[in-house]
Simulated assay, not measured.
Amino acid sequence: MRYTRNELLDIVSAQMPARRWTHVEGVIETSVRLAHRYGADPIKADLAALLHDLAKFWPVERQEAVVREQGLNPELLDYDKQLLHAEVAAFVAEQEYGIDDPEVLDAVRYHTSGRVGMTLLDKIVCLADYIEPGRNFPGVEHIRELAEHNLEQALLAGFDSTISFLIEKGKIIFPLTLLARNDLVRQLDREGK
């Protein structure tokens, strides 16, 4: 890592409005709390949460250019532009900030879409992004309650909420999110939960 945590705080917070930085702080706090609760590395959770939205407020054209020019997942270009920032953030974290931990980079990369075979850290950062204290949407309290007892059930409820919202709005759904949701259902079925 080329930067200290404090330097990264300054670098990342400078790239977004104050209200989004408040969100990032909430995701950091929630990720660390969930890491302690579920046995993940809280230092990795802190770092992934800190970096997860670093490209969120870049112009869409800049995000698309990074995806194209750096050979990142081209499928993202065909879906909601909100998906781009996660892939771009992981790339920038590695290339510009020297983050070399693949687990941290994947947690950043998949915090919006999820994926099949999500790691514990992936699940924690993704869920923390849904339920951080500043989030206020129908059903968030239920997801927060689930998060106290079962990480996978809470994340499944989060994916279900997102998918329902997208269907209600007539939007297309990124296939990886559906696959991630189905994978969680299978995992919970195997565990009898």
Rank of each mutant, 00 (worst) to 15 (best):
M1T: 10
R2P: 03
Y3R: 04
T4C: 08
R5Y: 15
L8D: 04
L9Y: 13
L9S: 06
V12Q: 04
V12M: 10
P17H: 11
A18E: 11
A18W: 14
A18H: 12
R19V: 12
R19A: 09
R20K: 14
G26R: 01
G26W: 05
S31L: 02
R33V: 01
R33P: 00
G39P: 10
P42G: 00
I43Y: 15
K44R: 10
D46Y: 15
D46P: 04
A48P: 10
A49F: 08
L51P: 02
L51A: 04
L51F: 06
L51K: 07
H52S: 05
H52F: 04
L54M: 15
A55T: 04
A55C: 13
K56Q: 13
W58A: 08
R62C: 01
Q63W: 10
E64N: 01
E64K: 15
A65E: 14
A65R: 11
V66Y: 00
R68I: 14
E69W: 00
G71W: 08
N73F: 00
P74I: 01
E75L: 14
D78K: 13
K81T: 10
L83W: 15
L84W: 03
V88T: 00
A89C: 09
V92F: 07
E96D: 11
D101S: 10
E103A: 14
V104P: 00
V104A: 01
L105G: 07
L105T: 06
D106R: 15
A107G: 00
G114K: 03
G114P: 08
G114I: 03
G114M: 01
G117W: 07
M118C: 07
T119E: 08
L121F: 01
D122K: 05
K123M: 11
V125P: 04
A128Y: 04
P133N: 07
N136M: 10
V140M: 03
H142P: 05
I143Y: 01
R144I: 08
H149R: 14
L155C: 07
L156P: 03
G158K: 02
G158C: 02
F159N: 02
S161L: 09
T162V: 15
S164R: 15
F165D: 14
F165V: 11
I167R: 14
I167S: 06
E168N: 11
K169G: 01
K169S: 11
K171E: 14
I172Y: 12
I173P: 04
F174D: 12
P175G: 02
L176I: 13
T177C: 09
T177G: 01
L179D: 12
R181M: 04
D183E: 12
D183A: 08
Q187H: 14
Q187G: 08
D189G: 13
R190N: 09
E191V: 00
E191P: 00
K193T: 06
